[in-house]
Simulated assay, not measured.
Amino acid sequence: MESRIIRLTSAEISTLWTAYMNNSMASCVLSYFVEKAEDQEIKSVLEFALSVAKKNVNGAKVIFEGESYPIPKGFTEEDVNLKAKRLWADTLFLHYVDQMAKSGFAAYGMSVALSSRLDVREYFNDCLDLNQEINNKAKNIALSKGIHVRPPILSYPEKIDFVKEQSFLAGWFGDQKPLLASEIMHFFHNVQTNAIGKALIMGFSQVASSPDVRDYFKRGKEIAIKQIKVFHSILQNEDIPTPMTWDSEVMNSIEAPFSDKLMVYHIALLNIMGLGNYGMAISTSTRRDLIKEYMRLSGEIGLYAEDGANLMIKHGWMEEPPQAVDREKLSK
């Protein structure tokens, strides 16, 4: 009864719309991965993740239909070519699912917190539970195959201690304190997400049909390379091991498995995820030099994301997200 009386809030419309768009894209990507996967254990995770993406699309659609709210176009079978040659190796498929599930925790968790209506909260709680199941399945298989990349191990302290000097917050000049465990965690995670993004965009740059889209992807690859080098340099200066990249998982195919529209949207999504990750890293950093570095890198991603949005508008690919009514326009 509640859902029939109370209209959707701006937060609910926004998060449902985003969930529909992202899961419709994921359905296309995962259907191609399932078609090409040869390792049966990895394929089973991909099939489960695909079923979840389709379920999430349908769940959002049902709520929108109940409100007579326009269903987004999103992405369809027109945006994927299952017959295209293999563009990435099976291990990249598995790492991709693992990384996307990590981002799902933040997105769905926030969506639950911002939702008021019971049916919407139930939808996002279900999304969150299924996302956790995907994460567990992917991680367990990666561990069993010896390809799960663990964060660095730190020595245990002998006792608790307290900060005694203001220099704990320094970083630009003089002696620098060692990285905190939380700072290492974020550097490690950001290297991984950039490495996955780099492997994806390398493949996209090989198969994109539009010259301007291909150039955009090449530029994105260079940005990923630069940012990975920054994170590697900081970790190496602290004698902390750096995670691997997955460049070798990209095949030499030049046959596009996805439409240019889907690929540009996917990179836009990775840009949003990257900015969110950097924002979280800034919030837990205590060294000013690290905060400055993250802000510089965020600015670079922000400019790249803006160019991607302009590219989508140029080609007529950007679906207009929910927004407030323009009262001034209506009054004319």
Rank of each mutant, 00 (worst) to 15 (best):
Arg219Gly: 07
Ala305Gly: 14
Ala84Thr: 02
Phe162Gly: 11
Lys54Glu: 15
Gln236Cys: 00
Tyr123Val: 04
Thr9Ser: 15
Phe64Glu: 13
Glu12Asp: 08
Ser259Ala: 10
Lys261Pro: 06
Lys292Leu: 03
Met202Leu: 10
Tyr265Ile: 06
His232Thr: 08
Glu133Met: 04
Glu41His: 04
Trp246Asn: 10
Tyr304Met: 04
His232Cys: 11
Lys85Tyr: 01
Ile5Ala: 10
Leu130Gln: 11
Asn310Pro: 02
Tyr69Thr: 07
Val120Pro: 02
Ile272Gly: 06
Glu319Phe: 10
Asn135Val: 04
Tyr69Asp: 05
Cys127His: 14
Ile5Arg: 10
Ile6Tyr: 08
Asn310Ile: 03
Lys292Glu: 05
Glu78His: 14
Gln99Ser: 13
Ile134Gly: 07
Leu330Gly: 14
Ala324Arg: 10
Ala199Thr: 12
Gly146Leu: 08
Trp246Gly: 05
Ala53Met: 02
Leu330Tyr: 15
Ile225Ala: 06
Gln166Tyr: 13
Gly104Asp: 12
Arg7Gln: 08
Met273His: 06
Lys55Pro: 02
Ser116Ile: 07
Leu8Gly: 11
Met202Ala: 03
Ala60Ser: 14
Pro322His: 08
Gly109Ala: 03
Thr284Phe: 09
Glu122Pro: 00
Met318Trp: 09
Gly302Trp: 05
Pro257Asn: 02
Asp175Trp: 06
Ala181Pro: 02
Lys36Val: 02
Asp215Pro: 00
Ala268Val: 07
Lys159Val: 00
Leu128His: 13
Ile282Arg: 00
Arg296Gly: 02
Ser14Val: 00
Phe33Cys: 09
Leu311Ala: 07
Ala60Leu: 08
Gly174Tyr: 11
Ser115His: 03
Asp175Arg: 10
Glu2Cys: 13
Gln99Asn: 13
Glu2His: 15
Ala37Glu: 13
Ile13His: 10
Glu293Lys: 14
Val325Ala: 11
Gly174Met: 08
Ile201Glu: 08
Arg86Val: 03
Phe231Lys: 07
Ser144Met: 01
Trp246Ser: 11
Leu169His: 12
Val120Asn: 07
Thr18Gln: 14
Val45Tyr: 11
Leu92Ser: 04
Lys314Arg: 14
Gly279Ala: 13
Ile196Lys: 03
Phe64Val: 12
Thr18Gly: 14
Asn56Cys: 01
Lys73Pro: 00
Ile160Arg: 13
Ala170Leu: 07
Ile240His: 06
Ile225His: 07
Asp247Lys: 15
Ile13Glu: 10
Phe204Gln: 12
Trp172Ala: 05
Lys61Trp: 02
Lys102Ala: 12
Asn131Tyr: 02
Phe231Glu: 04
Trp172His: 07
Ala224Cys: 00
Ile234Gln: 14
Glu238Ser: 03
Lys218Glu: 12
Ser3Glu: 08
Ala142Ile: 01
Arg214Ser: 06
Tyr96Leu: 04
Ala113Val: 01
Glu293Leu: 12
